[in-house]
Deep mutational scan, measured.
Amino acid sequence: AELMTLTIVKGAQGFGFTIADSPTGQRVKQILDIQGCPGLCEGDLIVEINQQNVQNLSHTEVVDILKDCPIGSETSLIIHRG
């Protein structure tokens, strides 16, 4: 298992991935745009978004944080894999 830092840019259609609740937090459910989120894999656990720890937040709260990220700006994700 490892922590990885990824930088992704939000496009007009969003980030290009969906998230779902899991017992340990929000996991990447589906990658819709592989080019839009390079390095991200289905099943990755989202630990931080732009230096904000999201592991204890609800699904709705994490979705809102992602929605609030401006289109075209870089967003830093720390994910836990494995």
Rank of each mutant, 00 (worst) to 15 (best):
G16D: 15
Q52F: 09
D68L: 05
T18E: 12
G82P: 09
F15R: 02
D21W: 06
I79C: 06
N53P: 12
I79S: 02
K29P: 00
L3H: 14
T24Q: 10
S22D: 14
I34A: 11
Q55R: 13
V9D: 03
G72S: 13
D21F: 03
K67P: 00
I49R: 00
I65Y: 10
Q35C: 05
A12L: 09
M4I: 09
V62M: 03
L66M: 10
P23Y: 04
T60Q: 12
L66R: 00
G14L: 06
G82T: 11
I8R: 01
Q55I: 11
F17M: 06
R27E: 04
R81W: 01
R27G: 06
I34M: 09
G16Q: 07
G39S: 10
C69Q: 05
Q35K: 02
S22N: 01
Q30M: 15
T75E: 08
G16S: 11
T24Y: 11
I8N: 02
Q13M: 06
I31Y: 03
L57R: 13
D21M: 15
F15C: 06
L77R: 00
G25M: 03
V62F: 02
I8A: 11
V54Q: 00
N53G: 09
V9R: 09
R27C: 01
D64Q: 09
Q52H: 11
L77S: 01
V9I: 07
I71C: 06
H59E: 15
I65Q: 08
G72R: 13
G72Y: 01
I65N: 02
S73A: 13
N50K: 12
T7R: 09
Q52P: 00
Q30A: 09
P23Q: 11
P23D: 05
T18A: 11
C37Y: 10
G43K: 15
K10Q: 05
L57C: 10
T75V: 13
K67G: 14
G36E: 14
L3D: 11
R27D: 01
L3W: 04
S22L: 09
C69D: 02
V63I: 03
L45E: 00
N53H: 10
L57D: 06
L66Q: 01
S22R: 14
T60R: 10
A20T: 02
L66G: 00
E42Q: 15
G72F: 02
T24C: 11
D44R: 00
I19H: 15
L3N: 14
M4W: 06
A12T: 11
R27S: 04
S58W: 11
D64E: 09
Q52N: 13
E74A: 03
D33G: 06
S76N: 12
N56W: 15
T60G: 13
K10R: 06
T60A: 15
T5Y: 04
L77A: 05
Q26D: 04
V28N: 01
L6V: 11
F17V: 02
T5P: 10
D64I: 03
E48Y: 13
L45G: 07
H59Y: 06
D33K: 03
I19R: 00
Q30L: 15
G39H: 15
S22I: 02
I79N: 02
P38V: 07
K67I: 02
T18G: 08
D64S: 13
G43I: 01
V28T: 01
S58N: 12
I46T: 01
S22W: 09
G39Q: 15
I49W: 02
L32I: 09
G25H: 02
D68I: 02
E61K: 05
G36C: 10
S76L: 09
F15Y: 10
E74L: 09
N53T: 10
S22T: 08
S76T: 09
V9P: 05
N53R: 09
V9F: 10
G36P: 09
T24H: 13
E61S: 03
M4A: 06
I78E: 07
S76R: 11
Q13K: 09
I71Q: 04
L6H: 13
E74T: 01
G16V: 05
L32Q: 03
A20I: 15
I31C: 03
S76I: 05
Q13C: 09
G82E: 15
E61G: 10
